[in-house]
Simulated assay, not measured.
Amino acid sequence: MSSLKIERDTVQTAIQQGVQNAVDAPRGVIASTAAAVTEAASGNLPGTKGHHPVAAVVGTAVTGGRQNAGTKGYLAAYLKQLEDNPLRTKMLTAGTLAGGQELIASWLAKDRNKHGNYFTARVPKMAVYGALVSAPLGHFLIWCLQKAFKNRTSLRAKILQILVSNLIIAPIQNSVYLVAMALIAGAQTIHQVRATVRVGFWKVMRVSWITSPICLAFAQKFLPEQTWVPFFNLVSFVIGTYINTITKKKRLAALRKKHFGDGGRPTGGSTMGRPEDYPPLGPNPPY
C-alpha cells in the first residue's frame, strides 16, 4: 500500500512537472495554452478549482501570468496606480481606449485612408482627445459629483446623484465630445461645429440617458470611487466603438453614392478612391 502511494505521488509529481515544463518552455502559443488549460482542468493552477479551465487560463493571463495565479496581479497594480496617480492613470487609460476605439471602428467599417491603412490620422487625434480632454474633464466632473454626495448613501441620495449626472454632467461631456469630434473630422468654421453639435446632441444624450443610470447604479453598488472614471471609459469604449462603426459605414455609403451616383458607376469618368479622396459633403457629419 505504501509503495502504491509512493508510485501514485511520483506519477502525479511527474505530470505536474511535465505540465509546468510545457507551460514554461518556448514551444509556441498553442502548446503552452493547451498545457495551461490541462493544468487548470486538473485544479493544479493556483486560485482555480478546475471547473472552468479556459476562463481560468484567460484570467491568469490577464492578471499577470502563472507566477501571479491566485493573486490580483495586473489589476492590483492598476488600482494602485489609480490611487497613487489618479489623473495620470486616467489620462493614459482614456487615451488608449479612445485611440483603440477609432482603430477598431475603422477596421470594422473598412474605413481606410488613401494609402489603404486603417491607422488613419484620426487615431492619434482621438488618443490625444481622450488623454488631454476627456480624462481631465471626466476626472474633474466626477470629483465634483462625488464630493457633492460624499458620505450620502441613502437611496434618495443615490437617485439624486444619478439625476445630477444625467442632467448636468452628461450634457457637458457630450457637448465637449461633439465639438472635439467636429474639429477632428475637419470642421473649420464655427458654423460647422455648431451644426455637428446640433445634429448629434440629442442622439448622444439619448444613449447617455439609457446607459448612464445603469452604469452609475452599478458603480455605486460595486466599485470603489477611484475606479469610476476608468469604468465609465470602458463602457463608453464599447458603446462608442459600435456607434463609430455604424456612423463610418453610413458615411462611406453616402460618399460612395455621391461619388458613383445611383447607377453604381463613377461619375465624370473618375475612379473609385479612398474616403479622403472624395469631396466634402458640406457641414461635417457627426462622428
Rank of each mutant, 00 (worst) to 15 (best):
S165I: 01
R206T: 12
V176R: 01
T63L: 14
A94V: 05
C215P: 00
I214V: 15
A69F: 00
A109D: 07
R152Y: 09
S270Y: 10
Y287E: 13
T60R: 06
L234I: 14
I6T: 15
K147T: 10
N166S: 13
T13M: 10
G263F: 10
L183E: 05
E225P: 03
K257C: 11
S134L: 11
T241H: 09
M181G: 02
T271D: 13
F149Y: 12
I190R: 08
N233A: 13
W143G: 15
I190L: 11
R27S: 14
F201W: 09
V57T: 02
A34K: 07
L223M: 15
L103C: 07
A157Q: 03
I214Q: 03
P86A: 10
A22W: 07
V199S: 10
V193I: 13
L234K: 02
I243H: 06
K110D: 15
N68W: 04
G240A: 09
H259M: 07
A219F: 08
A56W: 00
N21F: 13
V23F: 08
Q173L: 15
S212D: 03
T196P: 01
R27V: 10
P275N: 03
S32G: 12
R66A: 11
A217Y: 08
E7A: 15
A36E: 06
A14K: 10
G264C: 08
R265Q: 14
G264I: 06
P230T: 04
L4C: 10
H52D: 15
N174D: 09
T33A: 10
A77M: 05
K147Q: 15
V207A: 11
A41S: 15
K80P: 02
E102L: 10
G273I: 06
L145F: 06
S236P: 03
K150R: 14
T63N: 15
E225Y: 06
M181L: 11
G282V: 04
I6G: 08
P275I: 01
L97V: 11
L155H: 13
F232R: 00
G138K: 00
V204D: 00
G240C: 07
T227N: 06
H115P: 03
A121D: 14
T60Y: 02
A180T: 09
Q81V: 02
I168N: 00
R265K: 15
P136L: 05
G130I: 00
G50A: 09
M181D: 04
D9P: 01
I168L: 08
I30Y: 14
G130S: 01
N85C: 07
L75H: 05
T71R: 08
V23C: 13
S106G: 10
Q188M: 07
F237I: 07
L234P: 01
R152P: 03
L145W: 03
P124T: 04
K147L: 05
G130V: 00
A35C: 11
A25L: 09
Y74G: 02
A25P: 06
V128D: 04
A34S: 11
W143M: 06
L103I: 09
I15F: 13
V238W: 12
R265Y: 11
L4I: 12
W209Q: 05
V62L: 15
K80G: 13
V37K: 05
L234R: 03
N117D: 13
A14Y: 08
A94G: 13
R27L: 14
